[in-house]
Design a protein around this nucleic acid. Structure first.
Lengths: 157, 157
DNA sequence: GGTGAAAATTAGAGGTA
DNA sequence: TACCTCTAATTTTCACC
């Protein structure tokens, strides 16, 4: 269950649903060369197994009014459990923070933030990030262009 | 059109569809307190305006067999258009590369890669990344835990 | 923004190999 | 076990208030 076996048909289903999560079951079945019923049963099974965790609409961040993405690496002052935990919790709660990753390497956290221009970035730093205690150092990189952004990778085997 | 005005109802629609992209129009209408027809018209309009760009299934990367995520910062040897372009194109084509961002700051590209353990990471580096010419330096961080990963941020106004 | 109804789709039951 | 056919119930989609 934690590593369900996925045959070629499952893979094709996942591939199609990854590209278009609102495709009708009838169309999906046609594309993968199955009749609707077994196709639907497989989709159900994949959902129940947790391979498919959710479906969601992909929104255009530019049209929502926070067009710039900034990647911020953060080094904390201390590395005990509580400091790490607390910082992560604070970050999670900020709506403009899209991703929060606890990492190993030369920094502790990598966060991805959506801001409205440099003005929005400055506001985020001053009103939000710098109010969170325990940050030793942060390093930001503005995203000039995102060439690829997909949710998942389906290994061949 | 490039910055469509979104009223409160639009925002609630986007919020709901961001959480569940397969919700039926009837249910969506009920949640936002509208009857199905105008709700559906708004969804259509948001799609046509490009605010909603797509729908997709969210897959569990662990169950797909490439459980680890690595963030790799890359500095290129040269920074002319062609070098930058070529590198980005090569990265995009690798299926295990989930995200490719051209950035400003202390590195040129940030890529997010799904690998199967340190073994998979080593394979990626040796068989894929290090075959791409023009890399001056790279710096990797393994993701220990992802606390948040959402697609979009909907500013209040 | 609401109503209603035709068309399409889903979500299964039951059957075959 | 895996797939197919068939169908009732739901949902989408659209013309018209």
């Amino acid at each position: 269950m934690s590593q369900p076996r996925l045959d070629q048909i499952d893979r094709r289903i996942l591939h199609e649903l990854g590209k278009d999560g609102r495709i009708s079951n009838a169309q999906l079945a046609q594309r993968i060369g199955l009749s609707p019923s077994p196709c639907w049963q497989r989709v159900r099974r994949l959902e129940q197994q947790g391979v498919i965790t959710n479906y969601c609409a992909i929104l255009d961040q530019v049209k929502l009014g926070a067009a710039e993405i900034v990647m911020i690496e953060i080094v904390l002052e201390r590395h005990d459990d509580e400091t790490l935990e607390t910082f992560g919790n604070r970050m999670q709660k900020m709506p403009e923070v899209l991703e929060v990753h606890l990492t190993t390497g030369e920094y502790d956290y990598l966060i991805k933030v959506a801001v409205d221009g440099t003005r929005g970035y400055e506001e985020f730093l001053r009103r939000k990030l710098y109010h969170v205690p325990g940050i030793r150092h942060s390093r930001s990189s503005f995203v000039l262009r995102t060439l690829k952004d997909v949710q998942a990778y389906l290994p061949e085997d």
